[in-house]
């Protein structure tokens, strides 16, 4: 699985490509936690190319969200496919993330 990592100004944009399951979800988790090690992390996750994810990926997102909320920040998700969005809503954890239509919108929100 490929995970694109872009830096737009001071914002890290992670864009996994493919389903976030099993080892790929673990790989994504490590990458996300690495980014969060920065002193003042600003993270956007684009899920445009993610058809679906499993509980490992979901727990990575939740951990990242918790980590950021401790610093009064939030994890920003963009281009969310309906299936993923519904999974977050059905599990009742959608409110712990901020959703944006595009990466640009999410990056602008840091300004």
């Amino acid at each position: 699985m490929k995970i694109e990592h872009q830096t737009l100004g001071t914002v890290d944009v992670l864009s996994p490509i493919g389903a976030l399951v099993d080892e790929d979800a673990e790989q994504f988790r490590k990458m996300l936690l690495d980014v969060l090690q920065k002193p003042n992390p600003r993270v956007v996750v684009s899920l445009q190319e993610v058809a679906y994810f499993d509980s490992v990926a979901l727990s990575s997102l939740l951990d990242a969200s918790d980590e950021l909320s401790d610093r009064a920040m939030s994890l920003k998700l963009t281009d969310m496919p309906t299936t993923c969005r519904e999974a977050l809503e059905l599990t009742g954890i959608a409110s712990r993330f901020r959703f944006f239509e595009t990466v640009e919108d999410a990056v602008k929100s840091f300004l």
Partner: peptide
């Protein structure tokens, strides 16, 4: 979700097929 299947299995039991989820995520839902 619309892509999932839900039915009445018997008088007192309902059944759901969740797609694109593992056991963990299905358990959360």
């Amino acid at each position: 979700r619309l892509e999932d299947c839900v039915g009445r299995y018997s008088n007192s039991r309902f059944i759901v097929l969740f797609r694109r989820v593992d056991s963990g995520l299905a358990a959360l839902i």
